[in-house]
Structure formats: C-alpha cells, structure tokens
Simulated assay, not measured.
Amino acid sequence: MGTAAHPESWQRLLDQAGPPPAPPLHLASTSTSPSTSPSPSTSTGGGDLHHTPKPWNDAAGAAHSLRTDTDTARSGLITAHSGIDGIDTGAAGLLSVAALKTVLTSWEERLAAVRDECGSLEPKLREVARTMGGTDHAVRSSIAGYADPVPADEKGR
C-alpha cells in the first residue's frame, strides 16, 4: 500500500507518532479473548464459531413455501379473471377490460418469476448446508493433528 500525501505539518506529527501498532491476532478456533490468548502450544481450541445447516435449510424451506404459495396465488388470480374478455358479461370493448388484462398479464409474469426464482434458490440453499457441513468436517479433521500433536519419540522425531 502506498503512502498518502499529507501537508507538512501533519506529516511531522505522523512521523513523531511512529507506525500504528499491529492489531492483536486471534484465531476463531480458540475460545480465549485476544488479550488473554495463550501461546499456540498451549491453546486447546474449542472456538466460538460454529456452523449449523439449520439456517440454510430453513431458508430453503421458506423458498419452497414461497414458491408453492406464489404458484397458488397465480393460479387463483388466473381463475378469478376468467371470462375477463367481457363476452359473457357484455363488457366487450370497454377500456377498463383492456387495462385489466394488461395488469393481469403483468402480475402473472411477476408471480411466475418469483415462483421460478424460489424454485431455483431452494436446491442451492440446501447444497450450501451440505457443502458447509462437509467443509466443517474436513477442516476439523485436517487440524485435529495440530490440536493434539503426536509426541516425539526418544530421539526427538
């Protein structure tokens, strides 16, 4: 990162202050606060960051419900507007019928788009839940040896 140009008076003050202190490092897998972090060799892990598939599966369930409800609403809207042409009611040729048909078509398209988007989203959300669960397991397995290292033999190997 390059240095920013400051007026001379500010630059003198910045030079006097020295570089900013480095932020404390803290592993998400440790349960201690940064100010009391043990050395890496004494850390027992544990952590406070946990993954659960429940929010992802809940979101997938909501997408499924919204898809179903949207499709039901779209079907109901179409049914409610059957006969809108006015032939049976004597309203043929009225401008309001043409406007109503335009609005109906617009809502049909919107509801179909929501239905399709929710249908596409549900399996993706379920896949995230599965993938993250697998990743959590793989990471846990890969670092297990570091948490409890194998003791060296008599010759230090």
Rank of each mutant, 00 (worst) to 15 (best):
D58Y: 02
G86Q: 12
R130M: 07
K155P: 00
H64C: 06
G2Q: 11
S120R: 15
S65Y: 10
G86N: 10
D116S: 12
S120P: 01
G119A: 10
S41F: 02
D69S: 13
A28D: 08
V97G: 03
H26Q: 10
T102V: 09
A144R: 12
H64W: 07
P24K: 10
A112N: 10
D116M: 05
S82F: 06
P123R: 04
S9G: 09
V97H: 03
T32M: 00
H26N: 09
D148M: 09
P20C: 12
T102Q: 14
G93A: 09
G145Y: 08
I84P: 00
P38I: 01
L104P: 03
A63V: 01
E122G: 04
A59D: 01
A17C: 10
S29V: 07
L27C: 08
P21I: 10
P34E: 02
K54T: 14
T102N: 11
H81S: 09
D48V: 01
T70C: 06
V103L: 10
L13Y: 14
H137A: 15
W10A: 15
S37E: 06
A129L: 05
W107G: 03
L66E: 04
P149T: 13
A22L: 12
G18Q: 10
D69F: 03
D15C: 07
A99L: 14
P20T: 08
L125C: 05
A73D: 08
S33V: 00
P151N: 07
P123T: 05
P53I: 04
G145N: 10
G90R: 04
T30H: 02
G86A: 09
G83S: 06
D88S: 09
V150H: 12
L14Y: 08
A152V: 13
L77P: 08
G134V: 01
S120E: 05
R12S: 14
G46P: 01
G93M: 11
A63G: 02
D15E: 12
V114H: 03
S106M: 12
P20M: 09
K155I: 08
A4I: 09
H137N: 11
M1E: 11
A59L: 11
R140G: 11
A98L: 06
T131D: 00
T105A: 14
V139M: 10
A28L: 11
S65C: 05
R126C: 02
P23G: 06
P149H: 13
G18R: 08
G145Q: 13
P34Y: 00
V150P: 02
S29I: 07
A60G: 06
L13A: 13
M1G: 15
A99D: 13
P123N: 07
A22M: 07
R126E: 08
V139Y: 12
L111E: 03
L27A: 14
E108P: 03
T72H: 03
D153W: 11
D153N: 15
W10E: 15
W10G: 09
M1A: 13
R110C: 11
A73N: 02
A129W: 03
E117D: 09
T131P: 02
A22K: 13
T3K: 13
V114N: 01
